[in-house]
Each structure stands twice: as C-alpha cells, then as structure tokens.
C-alpha cells in the first residue's frame, strides 16, 4: 500500500484508541503452548480450546459455574488466631498472610457458600489456591467445620472442592491437627445420611488429600489434576528414578481405583446435579422396599431347613 495506510493511520489510531495491554488479552496454555483469547478462555471455563487442558479456575468463577443461575450466598467464617506459633522463617508469617490477603481479597484459603444446585439446597466449601497455595491451617479447618455444621443444620449435601498443596507449615502442629478435625466434621455429615461429595481439583496433595478430601462418598476429579500424598519431587529424590508417565494425575487415580470418575469441567455441573438428584430424590422405591418378613413361603427352602 502507501505510506498513508502503513504509517500515518496506525499512528493516528494509536493516539485515539485507549491503550490496551496485550498480555492480559491472551494467555498461553501451559500444556500445548497455544495462545488463547481471554474471552474464549472464560467462555470455556478456563479450559484450553486447543488441547482440553484444564487451567486453574478462580473460586468465584468455580462457584458461579456450579450453583443454579450462578447464584449463591457466602458464609462468613468465625475468626481464628492469625499466627498461633509466632512463626518466622525468612519472612514473618503475619507478613505472608497480609500479602495473601491483599492479593486475593480473602481472609484465608477457603470459601464457604450455600445455594441451590439443580434445585437442591447444598453447602460448598471451595479452596482458593491463590491464597498460600490453598494450604490448610486453623482457618481452613474452621471453614470445613463450619461448612459441615451448616450442611447438618440445613439437612443439605456437602460438596468440598480442594485445591491445596497440603498443610500450612507456618501453623506447625496445629495445621496437622486440622486433619483430624476436618475428618470429624465430614464424618458428622455422613452420619446424618447426607451426601458428602468431593471434587478434587489441581492440586490436592499432602495433609488435605490424607484427610477429608479422600473420605467423600463420591470422589470426582478434574482431568489431569495432580492428586496424591507425597510430592513428586520428594518421591523422586527418595527412590532416585523417573516417575511413571501421568503419575498422580486424575486419570492415574481413576485407573488405581481411588476416584469414582474424571469429569471435564464443562460436564461437572450436570454430573453433580444428576448425582444429587439420584441421592436426594430417590423416588418411592427407597422408602417402600421392605422384606417379606411375615410370609414364611417367601423362602420355602429356608423354612424347611428350620
């Protein structure tokens, strides 16, 4: 063309148009390397349209995606002691907390909400991986306990969505104790006959995987999510060999019998709605089935033996 279109027009446009920051508009898929337009990524619930890789999803988006019409109510969690051990490594734990709070706008790594899913009232506790790697300290324990208590109170199923590296080291032994604490909490839900469903997202490891996260009535995992107890690096240095392909991924766990299903994000809501309906709206058969106790003819051979 000529210098008018090639040179002058872009210059003029640059003056008129608001400045755009291209890095925010495109994201590179960490799995296949393709660039994805942010609107496409958002529409696909942070799943890469090229390779199907599931990128992490923010807690807010996660809850919107799961509840009916994206509507839910957040529960305020009871306050807990911020730094019970007065822990300091190269940084003060209180400073790390401040940073995480500023970064996420959240008090700690778990969000509890209630609302409807497929018309059924449910309680959800979802981890925020952006807050200190979703690590479990006393506040997270409090979140799980609160969610479980609310589920019992509302006679509602409980869905927990971990995304956590494990225990929060800076809370030392008290974070370890949350393993026992959260176990009691979810057991109470189960004992009430309420469904306890765990949706394992990337990553679910350490003390979180070795407590409430592995105790679900039903365990659903997102594709390729890392789920396991020991960290891959720790295992590699212990056994000094390469880990098998796909080790500790959701599909590996499915293969080993540790989860019920691996469900792509796009089908998660429908799957959960179906499961909740199957468990909560059981139909007449569940109530009416009785054993023919007063008809001895029902088992003639048995009565003959008696």
């Amino acid at each position: 063309m000529n210098w008018l279109t090639n040179y002058v027009r872009p210059k003029l446009q640059a003056l008129v148009r608001p400045k755009e920051v291209p890095e925010n508009l495109w994201r590179k898929c960490p799995a296949c390397g393709h660039m994805i337009f942010h609107r496409d990524l958002e529409k696909a619930l942070n799943v890469c349209q090229h390779c199907g890789h599931h990128l992490r999803l923010s807690v807010g988006k996660r809850l919107e995606m799961l509840f009916d019409d994206g509507k839910f109510q957040r529960i305020e969690l009871p306050k807990t002691a911020d730094d019970p051990l007065k822990f300091k490594d190269q940084k003060r734990y209180t400073d790390r907390l401040k940073e995480a709070r500023a970064k996420t706008g959240e008090q700690d790594a778990v969000v509890v909400a209630h609302g409807k899913m497929g018309g059924i009232g449910i309680v959800v506790a979802a981890f925020n991986f952006d807050f200190q790697g979703g690590s479990m300290g006393v506040a997270v324990g409090e979140g799980i306990v609160t969610a479980a208590e609310l589920a019992v109170l509302q006679d509602a199923p409980l869905i927990v969505i971990p995304a956590s590296g494990g225990a929060r080291m800076q809370e030392g032994i008290l974070s370890l104790m949350q393993m026992a604490r959260t176990t009691v909490a979810v057991e109470r839900v189960k004992e009430k006959g309420l469904p306890y469903i765990v949706l394992l997202t990337d990553p679910t490891t350490g003390g979180v995987s070795a407590s409430f996260a592995m105790l679900g009535d039903i365990a659903i995992a997102e594709p390729a999510a890392v789920i396991g107890f020991a960290g891959a690096r720790v295992i590699e240095t212990t056994i000094r060999e390469k880990l098998p392909e796909g080790f500790q991924r959701a599909e590996y766990l499915l293969d080993k019998g540790m989860v019920d299903m691996v469900v792509p994000r796009a089908e998660l809501r429908a799957t959960l709605v179906r499961l909740l309906s199957l468990l909560r709206n059981r139909g007449p058969a569940g109530d009416l089935l009785t054993l023919p106790l007063d008809t001895p003819d029902a088992f003639p051979e048995d009565s003959a033996r008696l």
Partner: peptide, 22 residues
C-alpha cells in the same frame, strides 16, 4: 513417599486410619 505407596492410595489409607481413630 514412593510410587507403589501412591499407587495403592497412601492418602486414602491415612485418612481412613485417622477416621478409625476417631
């Protein structure tokens, strides 16, 4: 921390043991 332990569900086994204690 080993491949075989993970393959057989180390996390689940620990969780169930805590559950049994309680």
């Amino acid at each position: 921390p080993g491949v075989d332990a993970e393959a057989r569900g180390q996390a689940e086994a620990i969780a169930r043991s805590i559950e049994a204690c309680l």
